[in-house]
Design a protein around this nucleic acid. Sequence first.
DNA 1: GAGGTCACG
DNA 2: GACGTACGTGACCTCT
Length: 946
Amino acid sequence: MDSRNHLYLVDGSAYIFRAYHRLPPLTNPQGVPVGAVYGYTTMLWRLAEDLHKADGPTHLAVILDKSSITFRNALYDQYKANRPPPPEDLKPQFPLIRDATRAFSLACIEEEGLEADDLIASYARAATAQGWDVTIVSSDKDLMQLVGQCAQGGTGCVDMLDTMKNQRIGIPEVVEKFGVPPELVGDVLALMGDAVDNVPGIRGIGPKTATKLIVEHGGLEGALAAAPTMKAGKLRDSLIEQADMARLSRQLVALKEDCPLPVPLEDFSLGPIPPEPLAAFLSTHGFTSLLRKLGTPAPAAAAAPAGDSPAAGKAATPAPAESTRQPLPTWPAIDRDAYPCVQTLEALQEWIDRAFAARLVAIDTETSALDSMRADLVGVSLAVGAGQACYIPLGHRGTDMFSEVPRQIPREAALAALKPLLESAAVIKVGQNIKYDLTVLARHGIAVAPIDDTMVMSFCLDAGRSETGLAGHGMDELAGRHLQHTTMLFKDVCGSGKKQISFAEVPLPDATRYAAEDADVTWRLHQLFAPRLADEGGTRIYQRVDRPLVPVVAQMERHGIRVDREQLANLSTRFAAEITRLEAVIHEKAGGPFTIGSPKQLGDVLFDKLGYKGGKKGKSGQYSTDQSVLETLAGQGAEVATLVLEWRQLSKLKSTYTDALQAAINPDTGRVHTSYSLVGAQTGRLSSNDPNLQNIPIRTEIGREIREAFVAEPGHVLLSADYSQIELRLAAHIADVAPLREAFEQGEDIHARTARELFGEVNRDTRGRAKTINFAILYGISRWGLATRLGTTADEAQAMIDRYFERFPGIQRYIHETLESVRANGFSETLFGRKTWFPRINSGTQAERQGSERAAINAPIQGTSADIIKRAMARMLPALAEAGLPRVKMLLQVHDELVFELPEEDVAAASEVIRAVMAGAAAPSVQLTVPLGVEIGTGRSWGAAH
DNA sequence: GAGGTCACG
DNA sequence: GACGTACGTGACCTCT
């Protein structure tokens, strides 16, 4: 049995800098960046795996830098003075390195006033003196001085291990790098200096010359002494003039080998690594692959319905969200009356300190209105644990005109105190729809980061799962579903309708109960959702796509877009006159006045009073009068139908656009600020509201004029960049349809290509029909639906579908496999792992079931497209900044289009960046087999940019 | 609040 | 033979 001890000394600080730059910016389920920590953890794992091997470690310690000020600064005040501060998203990872080390039950050594290098040198010397072998896990060139070194009287040997290159560094490798043996490395370093550590060396001498001099003269002192005899020149002069700098440098690079050892060597002895603390750590940070390796039974990837083949006719409802995990943690029940109202700066500071200590705080802002761009801040609530919540009133008025303003911390003072917490990279701020709070606080100069959002987390876990509402991710609903708690409703404190009061008028005790409860609930929901995301495969989409998008979308909303009020007002006037004229004519033709806007009255007039044929009554017993019905009537010569269609178009444009948009202009900014919902569409798309800027007219000439009113600031232009045919491209990729893929690669007209495949010839008619069929495929096809659209019979439509499947066989396979998978698992998935649930996919009601099937076929395609543009949006601002284009503002997203506002002179450069980011947005996560085409246009108005 | 209609991708 | 007439949204209007 080999009894020789082998000590591994891990240079932890140096490692994480390297890991940070080499690994992608991962974040853990709490949103803390952990890319470097992950790299560090896998390295420790690999070292631990060598434990049982003959030449593996018997002892191991991780050595960290503690402070930046060391004895070397006393020698040379410029030492390491040039070093830039670590990146913001690396800072919060430093303390986690200790957590990781402790999780492996390994020793972690750091000492004030010493660099890790000195501790490593001292431990190495002490170990070799006792005959131990030492491996230094690092690739730091300063440490190469120690290689091979045996302490006097000792017999142990030192080598190094570069875990990233998986390379052992012994004496030969050092000689190869420096041209000298390890004991002369210090001399070479002293001559050449080190830009990173700001070791001066001798100006003009680099590694080559330094090595040459040291080899020729046997060492630094030899080289300096020989300088006067060298041939005259710059090198000779430098050596003579800067000899003192070289000697100083020699001292700086020398490693201190006699530091007192804070922990005796024997304490580094390795035993089996206890799995529990390690498992807890891996789970906290979502390192699921390592967790699996640990042998912990991995939780089910997703909650599948019990049994594979549900009884026919009986709805197989996938297990509800709350039953997929362990029972609720043992939290105290929510007690509204226990929350403190914070009214002094001292009390506030205590809460801020607690939040810093907890490193995660739930936050909620209370305001005077729903529009985050107009609302005034009324108060802030915080939660640092279950039941550990408070409310900080900031803008409350008296409850009526006779009462006093309640005691509050002055708003600016409170915000100044909160700002460091809200902006600290080391503390996660959790909110329920935190985009709202981000905007409100940004208007007070606070840039809240990093963040987590329980609403978005819920969406990534349970989109489509709610049987009831469409949204299903509101706080009140989540509290009921996951915490079995009925929250206090807004209308409970503010009332509703005419009697509704502003939150600023709510008495403090009520406001505290309501607001602090929201923060408490948010904190608890976060605790439930974070591990679920890791367990159920939601981490990827949440961390990589949706969470990074939150601040980006918040900023787009804050930018808003300029609209020309006068232009809209002119359109409104024009439309009004035309509507009035049409109204008179329609009433005349109808033989009397009626409300044209009432479908009921219109139906009665058309089909009963005027006696037109073809009226169909729906289940409400009312005639349908929609566009297609009116068009049919118009085709049969009913002039009144044509007039009503015109009237409808103008009414729509006026009320929904030209009137409403004028009212939507924010008086402070003079711009229109939409609000995007991050959980609005089950497929993962954004939706836009108040006002909806995703449905501004474009398809008709008259509607298009409204787009002209969206304009750029003087000296600027609007730039519109849209993905061309992205959903068809994705269908071609996902279903692996070779002819379609090929057509996209060749840049062909895709509908024309489809026409050629289906009909053998391409003309206006066949291309149009092919286009209809292509869309039908994306939407989940039915022969009746297609027949209606094509104006043909169901049989002919079916023949066309058969032909399509025959020419593009991948499509049929995609549909089949998608449906099988959704029936079995309850959800569909995008290429980036976004799930959409279909609780009615196995419904006994045919209409319900077929509806779910069509949606399920469409969801992976529409959803993947949404993922891609979201990734492009998250990358866009950094990419523009890096390209020196900080003035380019991203304003709007319309599903496959992004709208920017930028100075005219930036157009050419910005176009290239925008195109590159959008076209490359799937990579590297997904390698598409079709190119993503991006079309760009610019102009003074949105209309002109198309 | 529901239903009908229509604006967009 | 009935089912119901393509996927995903949000806003406005009328009527109950």
